Simulated scan of single mutants.
Amino acid sequence: ITLKFIIIIIFNFFLFSVLIEKILRTVPEVGKIFLLIKAESEEAASERLKNEVINAELFKCIQQTYGECYHDFMLNKLVPVIGNISESNLGLEGDLATVIANEVDVIINSAASITFHERYDIAIDINTRGPAHIMTFAKKCKKVKVFVHVSTAYVNGKRQGRIMEKPFCMGDTIARELNFSNSKTETKLDVGKEIELAVKSKKALENDEDALKKMKELGLERARKHGWQDTYIFTKAMGEMLIDTMKENIPIVIIRPGIIESTYKEPFPGWIEGNRMLDLIVSYYGKGQLNGFVGDPSGIIDL
C-alpha cells in the first residue's frame, strides 16, 4: 500500500475524531496526518490533541490493538500544526509549509463558522475566503490527489422536495432559481463584491457601538436577498463557488452532511460526545424521560 500524507483542517474534533479513528484503525500504514489547528501555542495544540483524540473513548479499539505502544503509535502518526485558514498560506511558517506542500496527498477541510447569525465579516472570512486560501495552498502541493471540503446540506437554502446534488457555479442564487419576486431584475451574485462589502462595512463600523448587531443584520440581509435563510449557509455556498472556480486540475469532493449524531456501528455503536443539535432529545428519550415530541408527522428529519 502506498503511504499517504494527509492534512486535516480542524474546526472541532467531534466530527473529525471519527475520521481520524477510521483511518488509523483501517489503514495503519498511513504516513502522517497533519492536523491544522487554530491555537495560541504549540503546547495548546498538543494539549487539544491529547485530550480530544489520544485520551478519547472513541479510540479504545486502537488502544486495545496497540496496548502499551498506543501513545507512541498515535504521536508518530498525528502531527498537530498551528494554522489559520483566514490567513494566506494557512498561517503556516515557511519551512513547515514547504514540508507539507511537498508531502501531502490528501487535504480535508472541516473548518467553519457554524453560527447561523454570525457577523458577516467573520462568516465571510472563514466560510468563504477560507476555502479559497486552502485552494491556493493546494495548488502548491506537488502530490495532492484530492481536496475534500465539508460543507452542509443546508446550502440548498429554500429549495424543496427531492433535491439532486449539484455544485454551485459562480453567481448562482437560490432566489433566481426559484424565481423569487423581483429576482429576475437583480444582478447575479458577485462573491468578490460580497467580500468587499463585508470588509468595507467592518471598517465603517469600527467606532459604532452597535457594530456587532449591524454586521449580523447585514449578513442576514444579504443571505435572504439571494435565497438563503441565514448567514452561515449563504457564506458556505459562496465558499463552494470559489472552490469550483479555482479548482483547475485538482480533484474536488464536496460533502454536504445534515445533522451529525452518534456512531452507528464503527468503531462501536452509540458513541457520542457533548450535547449538540438533537443530542439532548436522543439522551432524554433513551432514558425514558421524554415520551413524545411535538412535530409534523409528515416532516422529514435528516440525521
Rank of each mutant, 00 (worst) to 15 (best):
S201A: 14
L189M: 05
K142S: 13
V199P: 09
S201D: 10
Y232V: 03
R222M: 09
Q160A: 14
I250N: 05
G192D: 09
T128R: 04
K214S: 07
T152A: 00
I255R: 04
W228M: 08
Y264K: 09
E186D: 15
K265C: 08
K216R: 14
E196D: 13
I174R: 11
T185K: 15
M135T: 09
H226G: 01
Y154S: 06
L218H: 09
K166W: 12
K158W: 00
A132N: 05
E240T: 05
I163V: 13
A211C: 10
Y120C: 06
F168A: 10
P257K: 06
K193Y: 12
K225H: 01
F234A: 07
T152I: 09
I195Y: 04
C169R: 14
L212G: 11
R256T: 06
I174H: 02
K265T: 10
K142E: 06
G258D: 00
I254E: 09
I259N: 13
S181Y: 09
E196L: 12
E240N: 00
C141N: 06
I255F: 06
I252T: 07
E240Y: 02
I174K: 00
N182G: 10
D208F: 06
A237R: 08
G258V: 02
H226T: 10
E165N: 13
D208K: 13
N182F: 15
I174V: 10
G171D: 01
